[in-house]
Structure formats: structure tokens, C-alpha cells
Nucleic acid binder design. Structure first.
Length: 319
DNA sequence: AACATTTGACCCTG
DNA sequence: CAGGGTCAAATGTT
């Protein structure tokens, strides 16, 4: 499949974005409403608040449903689920040569002492670029570092910590690609089959205004992505301990600082409110199962790892 | 002691 | 053969 995100958004996607923006706005209203409600919830106005909140929630769900339908009907819909507006810049779903350059086409043979050395053949990969080093919620273990030709910075190779105990084949490599405005390109290869990351009680739906520092799932700057795909996914767990230390700019030298700031993105009371309001209203599954099911459970599913709780939350919201 | 990182060698592919 | 991905011994950290 072609993996590069089109230069100009198709009109259907623009429409989808409009819908999502509307959904966000309504969610903002809902948030205000709920916060007011929470402010004086020991009064007797529970019932007053319930009706308009419900109405707004219905609007949100409808808006998201429309978005999904639009996206589903768009060409290359599987990409759109992931890439619309995100930092993801490339998706390698099949034989492709530009960026990953890692496409074996021959059989691999084991050799002696390196034992089970086996280069991944057809694993899908996708890249994203982030200005920060952000925990993505998985436990990664560094297994190598290479100086790359024509690259100013070495490339760091990570595999899932649970490669051995759970057979998780996910790997990634991260390379700093810009210095001044720090920019890191992460390439994820394969998907996680482990379930190591801590469950996230909140839904990371950014229903807050753009002024909010939250980035995850923001419909302005990014979109719903899988946890795997989203660099801001990781809530509590710092999965990469000593990553990038020689490349981190002076003001980011403190790993702990970086990780805590990523947590700031993630733990947003606003999103918690949104989740608690919406989480039980999952309606989408039927739509997705009937139509997008192939996308979810197929290759894309495999590569992006939608098989977790977070995925469920995501799609529950999108209705 | 257990686990993670570092690092040079090995291996694969173009 | 060069470049890049992976392995695993050595070393560091908790």
C-alpha cells in the first residue's frame, strides 16, 4: 500500500476535521456544564444538569459518528484513522523503500553464535516526529545504537521489554533529526502483543480548548491515535530510562523532567471528565465492526496495536 | 541478584 | 561492499 500521507487533504477529510472540531467545541460546552454541575453537586440540581449534558453528549457522539463515516468512505481510510492531523509522517504498510529501507525480501538464515538473529521481513512500520521525547506507554529496552550515514545523531534501537517473556515483537528506533528546535523521529516496527502498559483510567480525549496544554487527541493539533502511535500516550510509567541522554539539549537534560512533562500532557482532569461522561456510551462498535472491522482487525490493527483497552476507549468515543 | 545500557561484532540487504 | 539492524558480552544501575 502506499504509505505516504497525501499532501493535500481530500475534501472528505476536511469535512471530517470540521466535524471533529465541532465535536470538540460541544465537548467544551459539556465540560463547562459538568464542571458547574460538579461545583454545586450537593445541591438539588442534579436533574437539571443531566438533561442538557445528555443532549450535548448525544451531539458529540453524532458528530464523531459522522466523522467516522466520512473517513471510512474516504480513500485510504485506514491511514486516515491514524494519521489525520497527527505527527505521524509516514506509514509503511508494505513494500516501500524510502524511509525505513528495511524491507527484506529473502529468507533469513540463522547463524551460529548470534543464534536467532533474524531480520524482520515484512513488519509494518510507521514514523512520527515529535519535538520532545515522550513516553509512549510501552516499556522499551534499548538494544543498540548506530551512527547513521549523513545523520548528525546516532539512531537508537529499542525493543519491547517483554520480547522474551511475552514474545512481543515490537521494536522502534529513534533518531534525533533536528537540533535547534529539537525534533525526534521515532519509527515503530511491528506491534505490541504484550500487555505491559498500565491501564489508563482516564480517557485522553482532549475536550479542552486549544489553550489547554494537552496534546493527546486534540482535534486541533492531532487526532485520536492508538496508544502505540501516539507519543503522548503513556501515563504513569516511564518506559525508557536512559534514552537519548547525549542528544538531549541542555534544557532537556533531565530525563525526569521530560517524562514528567509528558505526564502533564496525559493526565488532564478535563479529559477525565469527558471520559466519565462518555465512556459508558459506546455506540460505535457496531458501526466499526460492520464496516471498519477489517481495518481494525487486519493489517492496521496488527501494526498499530489497537487491541487494547485504550483502543476500546477510543472507538467508544468516536461514535 | 536482577535488570538495563553500552558497544563492538555479526548479519542481512541492496 | 557499505549501510543499517540485531546480538550478546561487558558494564552499569537499582
Amino acid at each position: 500500500m502506499e504509505c505516504t500521507w497525501p499532501e493535500s487533504l481530500p475534501s472528505s477529510k476536511k469535512k471530517a476535521i470540521e466535524e471533529l472540531v465541532e465535536g470538540r467545541d460541544i465537548a467544551n460546552q459539556l465540560r463547562s456544564l459538568l464542571s458547574k454541575s460538579a461545583g454545586d453537586n450537593n445541591n438539588n440540581n442534579k436533574k437539571n444538569m443531566a438533561a442538557p449534558a445528555e443532549d450535548l453528549v448525544v451531539k458529540i457522539l453524532k458528530s464523531f459518528t459522522n466523522s467516522l463515516l466520512i473517513l471510512k468512505n474516504a480513500e485510504s481510510d485506514e491511514v486516515s484513522q491514524i494519521q489525520a492531523n497527527t505527527h505521524v509522517t509516514n506509514w509503511n504498510g508494505g513494500p516501500k523503500s524510502s524511509e525505513s529501507s528495511e524491507e527484506s525480501s529473502r529468507s533469513t538464515t540463522h547463524k551460529d553464535r548470534r543464534g536467532c538473529y533474524k531480520r524482520r521481513k515484512t513488519a509494518q512500520s510507521w514514523t512520527k516526529e515529535t519535538p520532545n521525547l515522550i513516553d509512549d506507554g510501552h516499556a522499551w529496552r534499548k538494544y543498540g545504537q548506530k551512527v547513521i550515514l549523513n545523520a548528525k545523531f546516532p539512531r537508537h534501537y529499542y525493543r519491547c521489554t517483554h520480547k522474551h517473556d511475552q514474545g512481543c515483537q515490537a521494536t522502534k528506533h529513534v533518531q534525533r533529526i533536528h537540533d535547534d528546535p529539537p525534533k525526534y523521529r521515532s519509527t515503530y516496527i511491528g506491534h505490541h502483543t504484550c500487555r505491559n502498559f498500565l491501564k489508563v483510567p482516564e480517557l485522553f480525549l482532549d475536550s479542552s480548548p486549544p489553550s489547554d496544554s494537552s496534546m493527546l487527541l486534540s482535534f486541533d493539533n492531532s487526532t485520536i491515535t492508538s496508544k502505540e502511535d501516539n507519543p503522548f500516550f503513556s501515563p504513569f510509567q516511564s518506559s525508557i530510562k536512559q534514552e537519548y541522554k547525549e542528544e538531549i539539549p541542555s534544557d532537556h537534560t533531565d530525563i525526569a523532567h521530560i517524562q514528567s512533562s509528558s505526564s502533564d500532557y496525559l493526565v488532564s482532569p478535563d479529559r477525565t471528565v469527558a471520559f466519565e461522561s462518555l465512556g459508558h456510551m459506546s455506540v460505535l462498535s457496531s458501526t466499526l465492526d460492520s464496516d471498519n472491522g477489517d481495518v481494525i482487525s487486519g493489517d492496521m490493527m496488527g501494526s498499530v496495536d489497537f487491541s487494547d483497552d485504550f483502543l476500546i476507549d477510543d472507538f467508544s468515543l468516536q461514535v
